[in-house]
Amino acid sequence: MELQVSTVSQAGHAVVTAVGELDLYTAPRLQQALVALLREQEVDRVVIDLSGVEFCDSTGMNVLLSGMKRVKERGGVFELAAPRPAVLRILQVTGLDTVFTVHDAIPALDAM
C-alpha cells in the first residue's frame, strides 16, 4: 500500500497527515515531507496525524524519531495524534509512547 502525506500549517504550527502504511518502502515519503517542512517554513510545533496509518514498522518509527529530533533541535515541539490501535500498540510495546507526546485526537490548528 502506498503512503499519502499532506501538510497544513498556520502561524508556526503544522499538522502532517499520513494515510496508508508506514514501512520500509513508504517511510522515505514521510521523511521527505518533514525535511521539506522544516527547510521551507519556520515551525515550532509539528503534529503528525496518524489516524490514517494502518501499519507502522521500525523504519516508520525511526522516521518519526528523526523528525522529533530535528524539531526539538530547533526548540520546537513534536507530537503524534490519533494513532490507530495497531500503531498505538507498537508505540507501547517499544516504549516509544513514553518518548513521544501522543494525543488521542488531532488538535485543531487554531487551538495549537
Results as ranks from 00 to 15, higher is better:
1 M>T: 14
1 M>D: 08
2 E>R: 11
4 Q>R: 10
6 S>I: 07
7 T>C: 12
8 V>W: 05
9 S>P: 00
9 S>C: 01
9 S>E: 14
10 Q>M: 11
10 Q>I: 02
10 Q>A: 07
12 G>E: 09
12 G>C: 11
13 H>I: 09
14 A>I: 11
14 A>E: 10
14 A>Q: 11
15 V>I: 15
18 A>V: 09
18 A>E: 01
19 V>I: 12
21 E>M: 02
22 L>G: 00
22 L>Q: 00
24 L>I: 12
24 L>V: 08
26 T>C: 03
26 T>H: 04
27 A>W: 05
28 P>D: 04
28 P>L: 06
31 Q>E: 13
32 Q>G: 07
32 Q>D: 11
33 A>E: 10
34 L>A: 13
35 V>G: 03
35 V>I: 14
35 V>H: 10
38 L>K: 06
41 Q>G: 04
41 Q>D: 15
42 E>L: 10
43 V>W: 07
43 V>G: 08
45 R>I: 10
45 R>Y: 09
46 V>W: 09
48 I>C: 04
49 D>Y: 00
49 D>S: 01
50 L>S: 01
50 L>D: 01
52 G>N: 00
52 G>P: 01
53 V>G: 00
53 V>T: 00
54 E>N: 12
54 E>Q: 14
55 F>E: 00
55 F>R: 00
56 C>M: 13
57 D>T: 01
58 S>T: 14
59 T>S: 14
59 T>G: 03
60 G>T: 02
60 G>Q: 00
60 G>A: 02
61 M>P: 02
63 V>M: 06
63 V>H: 01
63 V>C: 05
64 L>I: 02
65 L>I: 14
66 S>H: 07
67 G>V: 05
67 G>M: 06
68 M>W: 04
68 M>G: 07
70 R>N: 13
70 R>S: 15
71 V>G: 01
72 K>F: 03
73 E>N: 14
73 E>R: 09
74 R>F: 13
74 R>C: 14
74 R>E: 13
75 G>Y: 09
75 G>R: 08
76 G>T: 09
77 V>L: 15
77 V>W: 07
77 V>N: 07
78 F>G: 03
80 L>V: 12
80 L>F: 13
81 A>Y: 03
82 A>D: 03
82 A>I: 03
83 P>K: 04
85 P>K: 08
87 V>P: 03
87 V>L: 06
87 V>F: 05
87 V>M: 06
88 L>M: 11
89 R>K: 15
89 R>A: 08
90 I>V: 15
91 L>W: 02
91 L>D: 00
92 Q>C: 04
92 Q>T: 14
92 Q>I: 10
92 Q>N: 10
94 T>E: 12
94 T>S: 13
96 L>N: 00
96 L>K: 01
96 L>A: 08
96 L>Y: 03
96 L>V: 06
97 D>C: 10
97 D>W: 04
97 D>Q: 11
97 D>R: 05
97 D>Y: 08
98 T>V: 08
99 V>A: 09
99 V>S: 06
100 F>L: 05
100 F>A: 05
100 F>M: 06
101 T>L: 11
103 H>K: 13
103 H>C: 06
103 H>G: 05
103 H>A: 10
104 D>M: 07
104 D>C: 04
104 D>P: 04
105 A>H: 13
106 I>S: 03
106 I>N: 04
107 P>K: 13
107 P>I: 14
107 P>V: 15
107 P>D: 13
108 A>M: 15
108 A>D: 15
109 L>V: 13
110 D>E: 15
111 A>P: 01
112 M>L: 15
112 M>H: 12
112 M>D: 09
